[in-house]
Nucleic acid binder design. Structure first.
Lengths: 196, 196
DNA sequence: TGGTTGACTGAATTGGAATTTTGGTCATTG
DNA sequence: CAATGACCAAAATTCCAATTCAGTCAACCA
């Protein structure tokens, strides 16, 4: 295992467990079995190490989702497949929840801007995916940027905030809810005649 | 004008402008043109004064929305009417945004629990409204509690957070977006055949 | 001698003592 | 006797000393 990879693994572990500000470079070094100075041969700063981790997580998540998609399936089928893969990643994206909590509690600036960047990546990805859906005629014409934003925020609200005051949603309920809300809408199809 | 009403008006004004922790009882008294002690004849504590204001705002908002609803209109028409009334309330519900910002910045506990209560009121109201929509057959069967939660969170995300990184949405775009997302869903109706 | 270390530095953060502000009370007053 | 504002205890804020920690670099090997 390359030294760089050892550092990356140690950093991911530490940041995931303790958040940004509570993990020290000393700690990462010890976890990687090297000294603090050696980290700086591979990464110029703590923020760079952190950014690198987020980048990698995003890439891994995207690759996992993409492996799940089917060329021949329609947009909503694939949305469901992707969502199913994402919720299975609980362990991996617990970091994001941890960091969000840190931002709420301490306002740690690098954690905040890191999360902003993660949000941008995800919204951009969803946006491109929606654009393809529209081009192929599966999705109604809409502003893909806003819709992507709403999809992500709905997901995080349901996964992170809903459980504050309710039983947490099972993965299946979450997927069913998304399908019901966004694919088909709330309108009762047997009353379609009532549309003005 | 009753003394109590004067105090309420002064409190609403102060809390709206400065948030919870930055408004002092002295200040409210001065704004109401009375002395600090006099407030305590009508309200037992600062928190009570604050809670009273939130309560009133909620009631006024609900009444304004309800005045807009039509017995003979279907669920989604009425949702649109209500939403239109709510967005016209910008001035009034700026307090909520102000308080949310205070909670993020300082974590002021009374502001946090006040907002929790406001959220509960609104979700409860939406829930009842959804239940009627389901009973009357306008709305597809669904869990009204989760859906109410998602509707509110989507609204606040679009009104409060979307503008952090984009042009703010016009009232009309917001209403159109809600209609498109939740009433009809994203699925392109001309491809309905593709549903498995 | 190139790669690694860990003592070192200055900037940032923390803890807590001293000081100020403020929610709430109540004897006094007009 | 309704209203006031001086007063009190508690909470918040301000300092400042002590500590922590990101990042550096002279010394140290292998």
């Amino acid at each position: 295992m390359e030294l760089r990879e050892k550092i990356e693994a140690a950093a991911t572990h530490a940041f995931s467990e303790f958040g940004y500000k509570a993990t020290t470079m000393e700690q990462v070094a010890r976890l990687a079995g090297i000294s603090k100075g050696a980290i700086y041969i591979h990464f110029p700063s703590k923020e760079a190490l952190f950014g690198n981790m987020l980048q990698q997580l995003i890439v891994r998540l995207r690759e996992a989702v993409e492996a799940e998609l089917r060329e021949d399936a329609d947009f909503f089928d694939n949305l469901e497949r992707g969502l199913r893969r994402v919720v299975a990643f609980r362990k991996e994206h617990a970091v994001f929840a941890k960091l969000a909590q840190e931002v709420r509690q301490f306002g740690t600036e690098p954690a905040r801007s890191g999360l902003r960047q993660v949000e941008r990546s995800i919204v951009d990805y969803l946006k491109g995916y929606l654009e393809r859906g529209i081009a192929e005629g599966d999705v109604r014409t809409c502003d893909p940027e806003v819709v992507a934003f709403v999809l992500l925020r709905t997901y995080t609200a349901l996964v992170n905030d809903w459980a504050d005051a309710h039983e947490p949603l099972s993965n299946e309920s979450l997927i069913a809810l998304f399908h019901q809300l966004f694919a088909d809408g709330l309108r009762n199809p047997s009353k379609m005649a009532k549309i003005r």
